[in-house]
């Protein structure tokens, strides 16, 4: 039950990230389309999507953070395996727990400060500096949500690995 819920959460984060990447693509392609229109139709036909570069940047941030947990659970975040793969299973398991504990702590720490950064942006009413004024806390919320998911995924993996008495994340493309 909880397993299903968590996996759905990670996947949902990944889906939001994928949509954000699609949004970058459509936004930029639309602007290129408008540029072509202006070339063909002359200056009377020139239109710009205001602040499209800013928006593409914010979508990129949302994509990068929201996919963190899903990417972790899919085994795509990379690590050096050459050395640990030569150890006995017990030592491998021990090191896995150690690295997961470090990663959980670090991720929780980053989450705490990311949230306080967002809170500050909200408090002071920080705005993006482009043609369209975007309150910065809005894109920063995606950073916070993504980091919360990542912390959860690290913790989840730590607990799972403790119970299973072995590493539980398989590497995506073992060769």
């Amino acid at each position: 039950m909880i397993r299903r819920l968590l996996d759905t959460l990670y996947l949902a984060g990944g889906a939001v990230a994928a949509l954000a990447i699609l949004a970058i693509c459509l936004l930029v392609a639309a602007q290129v389309g408008l540029n072509i229109l202006a070339r063909v139709g002359g200056p009377a036909w020139s239109y710009t999507i205001p602040s499209y570069a800013d928006f593409a940047g914010f979508f990129l941030a949302a994509a990068s953070f929201m996919a963190l947990a899903h990417t972790l659970r899919s085994g795509v975040h990379i690590r050096v395996n050459l050395l640990i793969s030569r150890l006995n299973p017990r030592a491998t398991w021990g090191l896995e727990l150690l690295t997961l504990a470090l990663a959980t702590a670090l991720s929780a720490y980053a989450t705490r400060y990311a949230i306080s950064l967002t809170h500050e942006s909200w408090d002071y009413g920080d705005m993006s500096s482009g043609i369209v004024a975007v309150p910065l806390w809005i894109p920063q919320l995606f950073m916070d949500a993504g980091l919360v998911l990542l912390t959860l995924a690290f913790l989840d993996t730590l607990v799972e690995s403790l119970r299973a008495r072995r590493p539980v994340i398989a590497d995506a493309g073992e060769a």
């Binding site: 202006a38 002359g42 200056p43 020139s46 500096s129 482009g130």
Partner: peptide, 13 residues
């Protein structure tokens, strides 16, 4: 008129 003019903020646009 008709020149493609670089605009990086609302005022310039």
């Amino acid at each position: 008129a008709g020149l493609r003019f670089r605009a990086y903020n609302a005022a310039l646009e």
